[in-house]
Amino acid sequence: MKRLIYAAVILIALISLAFYSHFAVNRYCNDTINDVQNFASNNITSDTLTKSWNKRKNKMSIYVNHDFLDQITMYIGQMILGDNHEDENFKTAYKNIETLIKLIREEQKFAAHSFY
């Protein structure tokens, strides 16, 4: 009976963790894309973008491969460094962030291809 209780507790914790991490990562991804878009359309400053990303990165690192997050940090830095938003580097960094966010979402998705 004691072992059954342990199993039930582990199962509930795992299911809760799976759902929570899925929704949390999705929310963080949406917020990141919004921030990057707002920065591209000059709605927020580079300071705000950096601060909010750093805060979010810490939370995301619990669930997401740190390599993805480091790359996003690098591309955000690249976007900030670009003087002009029409600049090629800026556009490339923007696209790369979008791709990385898409990859993070794919990783969290409950899809058949992620089982193999």
Binding site: R3, L4, Y6, A7, I10, L11, A13, L14, L17, A18, S21, S61, I62, Y63, V64, N65, H66, D67, D70
Partner: peptide, 25 residues
């Protein structure tokens, strides 16, 4: 691999323990 979140390892170990307990029961 420091790039891997610890939670992934902890979750995988928890799944194994859950399966082991169920299998033993």
């Amino acid at each position: 691999d420091n790039e891997q979140p610890v939670l992934v390892g902890v979750a995988a170990i928890s799944v194994l323990i859950f399966l082991e307990i169920i299998a033993s029961i």
